[in-house]
């Protein structure tokens, strides 16, 4: 990985691509949700562990979305801004180029996770669930962040516009999230159960219940972690494969 490129990417993401403002927006949204939940009657009817689960889902969703937007535009913006040719003419390898941009998107996501830490601690205050909640947020959320950032950067390499890259990655996120919200007959059907068993997002959501509501031991939820690990590994493999296909605008 090239340090100069990583520094430039972080600078660009934070200042030029409004990454810092996105961080402020995430914090405002989380604050608004927290104030609403803490003060309305319906919010008070919810269990603390339930609120915690919703908060973790919201944090993960926002973090992944921001990382995907930044990752999905990283290569396309170089092509659209005609700076790709100059980059490819340096001795920096295509893989190193990809890795630098990917790391930048992941670091920004990690910063957003860090911003959410006080919220998670505040919501879980007094329940004894803070460590578990943070572990879910940082480890499971981390795996999903690695995976979706890799997918977004890959699409940024493989497609010709940032809109397409972000849209395709976002669509994949929604599609993978869909089984997690499946209810009733669909959820109990063979297809529903198969998807639920394989879907990394659904598994991430599912493991929250035993860990936060039932306070089960971490060893009992490993079955839900594997799909996320496999998904992250496949996404990174896609990124490595895509890195060989970096090309100039219109060349494809």
């Amino acid at each position: 990985m090239n340090k100069a490129m990583l520094k430039k990417e972080l600078n660009e993401s934070m200042f030029e691509s409004k990454g810092l403002w996105m961080m402020v927006a995430v914090s405002v949204i989380l604050s608004a949700l927290l104030i609403v939940v803490a003060n309305i009657k319906e919010g008070a009817a919810m269990a603390q562990s339930d609120i915690l689960q919703y908060a973790i889902k919201a944090v993960m969703f926002m973090t992944i979305m921001v990382s995907m937007v930044l990752g999905g535009s990283c290569f396309v913006s170089e092509r659209e801004g005609h700076t790709m040719e100059s980059l490819l003419l340096t001795p920096v390898s295509k893989f190193s180029l990809t890795l630098s941009k990917y790391t930048s998107a992941v670091i920004l996501g990690a910063i957003l996770y860090l911003v959410s830490v006080p919220y998670i601690i505040a919501i879980s205050y007094g329940s004894g669930l803070a460590v578990r909640a943070l572990l879910i947020c940082l480890l499971n959320g981390g795996l999903l962040l690695l995976a979706f950032s890799a997918i977004a950067v890959s699409f940024s390499i493989l497609t010709d516009s940032s809109k397409t890259a972000i849209l395709v990655s976002g669509l994949l996120l929604v599609v993978l999230m869909f089984p997690a919200f499946a209810q009733g007959i669909l959820k109990q059907s063979l297809i529903g159960r198969t998807f639920l068993a394989m879907d990394p997002l659904a598994n991430c959501f599912t493991l929250m219940t035993p860990l936060l509501s039932e306070v089960a031991s971490i060893g009992t939820v490993t079955q839900y972690i594997w799909p996320q690990v496999i998904f992250a590994a496949l996404s990174i493999a896609l990124l490595v494969w895509s890195s060989k296909r970096i090309s100039l605008k219109g060349e494809k």
Binding site: H82, T83, E85, S86, L89, P91
Partner: peptide, 15 residues
């Protein structure tokens, strides 16, 4: 080769 050449492309982009 990239180490001994310099290129100013036609549509040169800048940050």
């Amino acid at each position: 080769v990239k180490k001994i050449i310099g290129v100013v492309p036609e549509s040169h982009g800048y940050y």
